[in-house]
Each structure stands twice: as C-alpha cells, then as structure tokens.
Computed example of a mutant assay.
Amino acid sequence: MTNSPSSGKAAGTRPFDADALSKAIGSEAGKSLPPVHLWTPEYSGEIDIRIARDGTWFHEGGEIRREALVRLFSSILKLEDGKYFLVTPVEKWGITVEDAPFVATDMTVTGEGRDQRLTFTTHVGDGVTAGPDHPLRLGCTFETPCPYVEVRAGLEALIDRKTFYRLIEQGVAEDHDGASWFGVWSDGQFFPLIPTDELR
C-alpha cells in the first residue's frame, strides 16, 4: 500500500516544513506515543517523503539521516483507507510507503510451547509482542516470504530475513480450521503460516 506524492504543497496550505513539524509535535512526543488516534486535522497535501522497503526514510530524494527525526516522524504515522499520513493536531500530510512503515530487526523469545511470547523490536525502537492485539501474518509465498507483525493501529513491521529465520525455528504443527498448519505460538495465540503438506 502506497501513497503517490504529487507536490509538497496543496492548494490553500503552507509548504511542508520538517523542522516546524518536529517542533509542533515535540511537546506531545515524550516517553509515550503521541495520541495520534485523537488527531483529526484537515488534509494538508502530499509531501515527497518515502519510506523504503528496508525502513530508510527519504525526503525529496535524500536520506533523512537524523535518527531522532525519523523516530519522531514514525511516532506520528497514521494509516487511513490504505494510505499513510504524518499527522499533528493541525496538519495531515500524505507520504509514500513502499511496503510496511516499520522493519522488525530483532526478536526475543520467552516461555515455551503455548506459553511462548515472541517480542519484536523495530528499527525505530518500538517493542511489540505478537498476540491477539499484534497479529503475525505471512504474505507473498513461503519460498519468498513477506512476514509482518502489526505494531499499532494497522501499521505493520516487515520482519527482516534473519529474524524470520529465527521465527521459523519456533514453529510447530497444529490443527487449525480442520487442517494441519505450520506456525508459531505467541501470547496465547497460534499464528498459522503455511499448511504442513506444503512444507518441503
């Protein structure tokens, strides 16, 4: 799912200013995430910000190298009707996301069997335990997998290859919807990944 940015300024709006946006949300973004779900500003336009499949952020073709700015922007991401936006209490800017807005780069395992918990860390420092509120899913194919875990409010993290291999090591076969599936347990929920008869 992607947006397709046009210009950095919509009719009747002021130009996008990254520093001004950073200051506007600075007071809201403390140790906890900003209350993005409560912010419903008018649409401000499209801006040339792109999140690449590997999680790298670009603005007008150049990589955003300020880690603090990337983390701040990632905290005000919002997904609406399949499109991604950066939002503040007064602005709503459409951006492009090539795949998922986050990348899960590490995983810790606690517990065993059905009591197992799989906790992922994203490239911007989010920590999320797969479970009923943070489902896992496998896109593409098992041969060329695109595994995802939901971070918050529909925003997903693409699980990177090395972490996916570790995830597979935790896999077991279970009955699911009347068939045998290979998948993983986390936080009391079984996540089916592929029918066992399709495993090679």
Rank of each mutant, 00 (worst) to 15 (best):
R65S: 07
D81Y: 12
E60Q: 15
L79Q: 06
L77C: 07
I51N: 00
A29H: 15
K78F: 07
G8D: 10
R50N: 05
A52Y: 02
D54K: 04
A29F: 15
D48F: 02
P5Y: 01
I49F: 00
G12L: 02
I25Y: 06
I76Y: 01
S44D: 08
K9T: 10
V70G: 02
L86H: 03
L21H: 02
V70S: 05
W39Y: 10
D17N: 14
L33N: 06
A10N: 14
P15S: 06
D19P: 00
A29Y: 13
G55Q: 02
S22Q: 04
L77Q: 02
P5N: 02
E63Y: 02
A29W: 12
S74R: 09
S7V: 08
W39M: 09
V36K: 06
A68F: 14
E63K: 09
E46R: 03
K83P: 03
Y43C: 11
A18T: 04
S27H: 15
V36P: 04
R66A: 14
S22I: 04
R66W: 06
F73K: 00
A20K: 12
D19V: 10
A18S: 06
P34L: 08
P35R: 08
G45V: 07
D81N: 13
K31T: 14
G62Y: 11
A11D: 11
G45I: 06
R50D: 04
R66Y: 09
S27R: 14
I47E: 01
F16Q: 02
G61F: 07
R50M: 05
P41Y: 07
F73R: 00
K83V: 11
G55S: 03
P34M: 10
F58H: 04
D48R: 06
G61R: 10
S22D: 03
